[in-house]
């Protein structure tokens, strides 16, 4: 179909592949390495297997959510409701499992039922956000700000202002999902790792990932290029909802409870991790591995501050804020110099 053009110039452009190490790539990794080195230097226990397992496992919830958030933000969206959504789904999952306990008894089926409920709730919650944003054309910020309040209230209401707790026996049975593992790696880390790897592949090498970046970069161009903009955007929110459900499946066995304070500020941590990782907040470019680095940076800061007596605990928030801003500045400098 393509007709060769009569060349008006005999010399086509010389394409010398030019690769340069850019700070946008090195920045977050460098920050992570520096933090790890600092931790190891300040406390020898930092590099112990137990501590590394702790940090990775506790990063898993926000990490799994942040991978989904990377797609939403890359496609030019935003979701503020994930923290509340996680709390609500956790509450729902606990109630479903407790309610089914008398009839099903403790066993694998009831755990599977709980997991199914969590994933279904996540899917529906994501679908609701996505439909309001794509079909009714309401700003993502407003839609998810609204659903954030709704889910937070719902979980408070479900728990009657207190805490929803999983039946003790059920929790003991389900606990290995958080504390157990395979080949010495605990399940949350395994799941987080799989989600991250799959996410990176989807973002980097599938039509869907490319479409997300195209929509976030310029919605009009995507539309004129026959990309089903609304459908792709909807899919990002549904995927995020599902991943919130998955994170909850990992979260519930840890403490076996959900309350109004579950998942508080997770949305901001997830968004911060995405941005530290080099994804553009306005959309158009995203990378999942960066998000993983971002999540680890955030977790490590807390861990190091707990392991050392470097600063007053009152200043923990300030240190975190400082490192977030520094990580982003490091990248910006790279950009202007590139």
């Amino acid at each position: 179909m393509t007709a060769p053009l009569p060349a008006s110039s005999p010399t086509p452009a010389a394409f010398a592949p030019r690769r340069r190490i850019s700070m946008t790539v090195v920045g977050p990794i460098l920050a992570l390495i520096l933090l790890a080195a600092l931790g190891a230097w300040l406390n020898p226990n930092f590099l112990s297997a137990a501590n590394i397992t702790n940090v990775l496992a506790r990063s898993a919830f926000i990490g799994i959510i942040a991978v989904g958030m990377t797609f939403v933000i890359t496609a030019g969206g935003l979701d503020l409701s994930v923290g509340s959504m996680a709390a609500f789904i956790a509450g729902l999952m606990i109630m479903v499992m407790n309610a089914a306990l008398p009839s099903m008894g403790v066993g694998i089926p009831i755990v599977l039922l709980g997991m199914g409920a969590a994933l279904l709730a996540g899917l529906l919650a994501g679908l609701l956000n996505g439909l309001l944003i794509t079909k009714l054309g309401i700003e993502a910020f407003i839609v998810t700000l609204g659903s954030m309040g709704i889910y937070r209230s719902l979980v408070t209401w479900l728990a009657d202002g207190g805490t929803l707790s999983l039946d003790f026996q059920l929790r003991s049975f389900y606990q290995p999902i958080y504390y157990g593992g395979i080949f010495g790696v605990s399940w949350p880390i395994v799941v987080f790792g799989l989600v991250a790897i799959l996410g990176e592949i989807v973002m980097r090498s599938t039509v869907f990932g490319r479409w997300c970046a195209a929509i976030g970069s310029n919605e009009q161009v995507a539309k004129y290029s026959s990309v089903k903009v609304a459908r792709v955007r909807l899919a990002t929110y549904v995927m995020l909802g599902l991943l919130v459900g998955l994170a909850v499946i990992m979260y519930v066995p840890r403490l076996g409870s959900a309350s109004a304070s579950t998942g508080l500020l997770w949305e901001l941590e997830a968004i911060a991790a995405v941005i530290i990782g080099g994804t553009l907040l306005k959309g158009g470019f995203g990378r999942v591995w960066g998000t993983v680095v971002g999540v680890l940076i955030l977790s490590l800061i807390g861990n190091i501050l707990n392991l050392t007596d470097l600063v007053s605990p009152y200043l923990n928030g300030a240190i975190q804020g400082l490192i977030i801003v520094l990580a982003v500045i490091l990248q910006r400098e790279g950009k202007s110099g590139a």
């Binding site: 039509v207 479409w211 310029n218 161009v221 004129y224 158009g284």
Partner: peptide, 21 residues
Amino acid sequence: KTRGLLLAKGMRENLTLQALR
């Protein structure tokens, strides 16, 4: 510029966007 091409992306991504499948 505003409907045809993603100006902030490279030539490869732009070239194949429409026929990506």
